[in-house]
Amino acid sequence: MSLNNVRLQKVVKKQSVYKVKANLSMYSSLIVIQLLALLFSLGGTGTMGTSSVGYNGITIRLFSADIVIVFTMIWGFITAIMLTTKAYKEDEFIFVTNRLTSNLSNIIFLFVASIFSGITAVLSGYLLKVIMFSFFNYEFLHAGTSSEFGIFISGLLTTILYVFMFSSFGYLIGTVVQLSKMFIIIVPVVIIGGVYLLSRINQDVILDIGSFYFLESNFFIALTKIILTAGICFLAAIFISNRLEVRK
C-alpha cells in the first residue's frame, strides 16, 4: 500500500477546475439577472429634464450599464453566500479536500466568476446602446463611451473587482452563518442597526462609505481599497471556517 502525498497547490487547482464545471448553473442565473437588468435599463438609468413655457421641454436620458453592474454585484454577493451553504460544502467534501483548499478554490472560483460577470456587465452597456440605436427613436446627443482604451480597461477592471469585493462580503457572511444559525438574525441586525446608529452620529456616514469605495478618482488607490477589503473578508472567512465540521 503506497500512500499518496499531495501538494496544496495541486489540490486547489483541481478543485477550482472542478468548481467551475460543477457550478455551471450559477452562470445561467447570471445571464438571466443581467438580461433582467438590461430590461430595466431600457427606460434610461438617469434623466435630466428642463421645462419651459410653450415647449414640452427637453428630457435627456442617460443609458448606461450601471443597473447591470449593480445587479451583477448582488449576484456575486448571493453566489458567494450559496457557496458556503451545506449543500455546496457537501459536494466538495466528496473528493480530496480540506478546509483551506476548499476556501482557496472557492475564492478562485469567485474571482473567475467576477471576471466573467464583470466583462459581460460592462459589455452589456454596448448592447444597450445598440438596442437604443436599432429599436428606439431617440435623438442621440452623445453616443460615445470612453474613447480611450486605457479608460475602458480600467473601468472593466474596477467593475470586476467590485463584483469580487461584494462576493467577499457574501462569503464572509455565509461563513459566519455556517458557524451558527443564530447569525442569520444577528448579522442583519448588526448591519442595519450599525448603519442606523452611525447615521445618527454623522448623517453622511453612508455616503462617506459609498464615496470611499466608489468615488475614488485615482485608479490605483481604488484598486488597493477594493483588493484590501476583499482580502480581509476572505481571510476572516478562512480563519472562521477552519474548524467547521462538514457532512453532518
Partner: peptide, 17 residues
C-alpha cells in the same frame, strides 16, 4: 482538516452528494 489523510481516504455512505 488534513489534506494528506483526505487524499488517501474515501468515505462512502448513502448521503454522498
Amino acid at each position: 482538516n488534513n489534506l494528506y489523510v483526505s487524499a488517501n481516504t474515501i468515505y462512502v455512505d448513502d448521503q454522498m452528494s
